[in-house]
Amino acid sequence: MQDKTKVKHNRKMKRFCRKGIPAEYRPVAWMTLTNAESRMKMSPNLYRDLLARSIEPALEETIRLDLHRTFPDNIHFRSSDDFETLQVPLYNILKCIALKNPHVGYCQGLNFVTGLLLLIIKNEEKIFWLMDTLITEILPDFYNPNMKALKAEQELLGQIVKWKLPDVHDHLRILGVPWALIGTKWFICMYADVMPVETVLRIWDCVFYEGSKVLQRVAITLIALNKEKILACKDFPEAVDLIQKSVKQPPCLHCHNFMMHIFNEPGSFPRSRINSLRDTCFSEVT
């Protein structure tokens, strides 16, 4: 089948995404940029078929335990008699992802990514396809139960810090802060339920076009912006506390400035170097 909706990769498009996709175009843009739209068109009945199937009780239970804990402060996710709660489509999508990707099943964190997409795209089937595309094509294998790719990604962050900010790297090593403590939720949730929503959406505009290395740009920027404070930390809890609170600090609240930072602060970020570092980290993870 000839693919008419596939977006050409070019500088102009990159700039468009980095500047922030206007809210009204986001649903269409995200679906096309990621290629989820054409994948959906190639299997027009799949979502409906999956929806009709049932899943193992244990898996269903694991998903259900997280439904009412997903954005519980957001009115659309509350259970109520007055309006339809988004917990229903959230369950449907998570269930279908698990059915389509049996090796993934359900991984905590998928609820937050799906939940935020529900607030933007408002179409179950489309979100299912976007999630499926993220899992199978865009992100490293973060949601695999062996967690290898996730651990490798955290080590990769360590390597990038060592390359870009060697003094911070040394200092955190002396304090005994393992990278795996820093990035678990950042990467698994792609910053959803971590950073302010508007900033997350801007990050996703770029991830969906440029790929997962944008997540590393964000991480290294968070560390770079707090470099002096991190270097002043005297112990392990102080340093971890500081880094984790950094996601809610002023530079992250102003999404436009923050996005400027992520593309300027870390300097050059060649895909080939990132990929080869990632491979090395992956092979070293146990």
């Binding site: 304090l175 005994g176 802060v177 403590l181 820093i182 678990t184 939720k185 950042w186 698994i188 949730c189 971590v194 005297k234 112990d235 392990f236 809890p237 971890v240 506390d241 984790q244 609170k245």
Partner: peptide, 24 residues
């Protein structure tokens, strides 16, 4: 305990919440 805390003699109240950190 390489990762433990060196406490200076700050005054603290018993039963006092110090800080919360999300490590996710």
């Amino acid at each position: 305990l390489g990762s433990s805390i060196k406490l200076s003699n700050t005054k603290e109240n018993a039963q006092n919440v110090d800080s919360e950190t999300c490590l996710c």
